[in-house]
Amino acid sequence: MKMWHIIWFELRMLIRMRVVLLNQFLLPMVLILILGNALSGMISLGDDAPIDTVTAMIVESPGQEALTSVGWNEFLKTPEISELLKVQHGDHREEAISSLKSGDSDFAVVIPTDFADKVMKGESVKWEMIYGKDHSKNHVAEMIFESYLDEVNRVQASTMVLGPNTLNSAPQNVPTSYVEMASLNKEGNAYSAFQYYAASMLIMFLLYSGLTASSSLQSEKRNKTLYRLNSTPISTLKIFLGKIGGNSLVACIQAVVIILGTTWLYGVNWGRHPIYLILLCALVIMAAMLMAVVITLLSKSSESAQTIFQVIIVGMTFLSGGFQRIPVDIIEKLGEFTINHWALQGMIRIILDASTGEILHHVLILGLFNVILLLVGTVSYRKVGYHE
């Protein structure tokens, strides 16, 4: 018996299993359809995607007339700002918090009493921004006010380098628009909810193929068939690699079915870089199989291995924004430590026809994940081994 016989046997066995066909082929297509339709308003990033007006309460301390000297009133009257921002004025911070809790305001800004004076002196300035209940509106408001502060900081830098007389000429240098509507990449393309969730669910279910591989490895021990396999003229390592290889082939078929299925049924455009798309899928499959190796060898039972695998996959999908993008700093930071994040962002850049350098950056990070998993898996196999 050769390793290829084990791969072929594993492939035939998995394809004949209804559970595998339902979970790895049908379920992702159904989820992409549901999420693509249900959350299209939240993910759509095309030119026609609406941006809701944000009601912002601005708390200014009495005697802040000096704000007019730093372009504050001109900023609020800018046409682009007035379309996106509905301004309410508050007297104190507690009033702003109360307005946010009641839903009368979406966002609040507290301007310190010495703000204008610090600007005139060229000192560092900052505002207190209080977030509301809507994450997307928080993000829009934060970008709007930060655009103003960025311009103020530019004037500060000029004042410190060229002298205070520069501030007098600053209004002539201020841009007429603080907000510029633009697409996400140089090509002017954008992605839809179907494209986003097609990529997200493809990655998640390719990782789940590792769970199937782990279950297959554990079943040989549980059914007491590993001993009989070891009695054949083939090494334990080849048996181990054969089962991993069979599951990898099923995962490859799964990737092809999801990509072609979403293209034909849902009209998903996967971009013009099929080679990079194949490479990302291969790296995700490799990561899934290496995770299966590590978790299977280090787990005491198949039940614990399945639990650990599911927690890891769901957790990585959540942190990477695979279910829904969450604009919270701590979650976004943690998401950068997941396989899903780099695979998803890489696929999004393929869909947007981004530059080769941007795509390869994500490919290299995924490759680094695989190198780490390979090292851990190798050490685990040498210490634990695959036996009953």
Rank of each mutant, 00 (worst) to 15 (best):
M3C: 05
M3I: 08
W4P: 01
W4D: 06
I6P: 00
I7E: 05
W8C: 03
F9H: 12
E10V: 03
L14R: 05
L14M: 13
L14Q: 07
V20P: 04
Q24R: 13
F25C: 12
L26V: 05
L33W: 08
M42W: 04
I51V: 14
T53L: 07
V54R: 00
V59N: 01
L67C: 13
L67V: 12
T68C: 06
I81F: 00
L84R: 06
K86Q: 07
V87K: 10
Q88C: 14
D91G: 15
E94N: 13
S99T: 09
L100C: 15
K101V: 13
S102R: 10
D104Y: 13
S105Y: 03
T113M: 07
F115S: 04
V119L: 02
M120D: 01
G122N: 09
V125L: 11
W127Q: 05
M129E: 03
G132V: 11
K133Q: 08
H135R: 07
F145A: 00
A157K: 12
M160T: 03
L162Y: 15
G163V: 09
A170Q: 01
Q172L: 15
T176Q: 03
T176R: 00
Y178A: 01
V179P: 00
L184I: 13
A193S: 11
Q195C: 07
S200I: 09
M201V: 11
M204C: 05
Y208N: 15
S214A: 12
S216N: 15
L217Y: 01
K224Q: 09
Y227W: 10
P233F: 14
I234V: 15
L237N: 15
G242D: 06
N247L: 12
I259G: 05
Y266N: 10
Y266K: 04
W270H: 07
G271N: 09
R272K: 05
P274S: 13
A292D: 07
V293Y: 03
L297F: 14
L297T: 11
L298D: 08
K300S: 09
S301H: 05
S301K: 06
E303K: 13
E303A: 13
A305V: 08
T307D: 11
Q310I: 15
I312L: 10
I330K: 09
E332I: 14
F337Q: 03
I339M: 11
W342D: 02
L344H: 02
A354L: 03
G357K: 04
I359D: 11
F369H: 14
L373Q: 01
L375G: 10
T378Q: 09
R382T: 12
R382M: 10
